[in-house]
């Protein structure tokens, strides 16, 4: 099977800042790929570049051997994203159902077809059907995240990118969303990219991972190797500064 995401020597510059400084990586299909790094490391820029939201200065990106071309429509069928603040990505003036009807327009489906898919998607994600008639401000943060997942999946993408999926969620509820991502992976032919600064979560959920620092990838490989036997100094430093619960009882 072809590589899900193949990036070669990608460079992106904002003014004087080299946000991506020669990034190369491969994401295998059906893998969960973790992209970690601190703020300003370039992980969000890399994600936005894969989505076609930033222009490459040099280098190339291909999704399933299809080079990133000009057709945003084709791209949207391959890759979808859940953004960090899901409530902000839902228009406050439209009901959830109306927002999801748009997916049908993009997919060229009839209103009836998309409504049937909306309902089965909501049932699958554990969202009450009544949510479809609500406005974004009327639902909880956890539900907004699920709605964002529903909207992304209704596009039937082959790749789903989750940007900081647990940011802003309390520890008692973040497990719910992480388990949902795990379930989606189990019963879909879906490649998942998790962009996060939360090393502990990525360590458990990812098959393979890359560590970014100052626009470059300083380490990449199987998650077990990156997190449990890192070779780069920076990865070691990052892991060492992560607070440990064991400190208390040791």
């Amino acid at each position: 099977m072809s590589t899900a995401i193949s990036i070669r020597e990608a460079r992106v510059r904002f003014g004087h800042t080299q946000a991506l400084d020669g990034v190369s990586l491969d994401v295998q299909p059906r893998d969960c790929f973790g992209l970690v790094g601190e703020s300003g490391s370039g992980k969000t820029t890399l994600m936005r570049t894969i989505l076609g939201l930033e222009r490459l200065q040099a280098g190339s990106i291909a999704l399933f051997d299809i080079p990133l071309g000009k057709s945003i429509k084709q791209r949207a069928r391959l890759v979808q994203a859940i953004f960090q603040d899901p409530a902000a990505s839902l228009s406050p003036r439209r009901r959830i159902g109306q927002l999801l009807d748009e997916v049908g327009e993009v997919m060229g489906e009839t209103r009836e077809e998309i409504r049937i898919r909306q309902r089965s998607m909501f049932q699958r994600l554990g969202l009450p059907l009544g949510t479809l008639d609500k406005y974004p401000y009327q639902i909880s943060g956890g539900q907004a995240r699920r709605v964002a997942v529903a909207r992304a999946l209704l596009m039937r993408p082959r790749i789903l990118i989750a940007d900081e999926p647990t940011a802003g969620l309390d520890v008692s509820v973040q497990g719910d969303l992480l388990n949902l991502l795990q379930e989606l992976r189990a019963d879909n032919d879906l490649t998942l990219v998790v962009v996060s600064h939360n090393l502990a979560v990525v360590r458990l959920i990812a098959d393979a991972a890359a560590v970014m620092h100052r626009g470059r990838i300083v380490e990449q490989g199987p998650a077990a190797q990156v997190f449990d036997a890192p070779s780069a100094d920076y990865t070691q430093r990052l892991l060492a500064s992560w607070p440990r619960l064991r400190a208390a009882t040791a």
Binding site: D228, W242, R244, R246
Partner: peptide, 12 residues
């Protein structure tokens, strides 16, 4: 979620 939690061979 701790950084030293037990991790199985299969992240799935």
């Amino acid at each position: 979620v701790t950084i030293d939690a037990a991790r199985g061979a299969d992240a799935r």
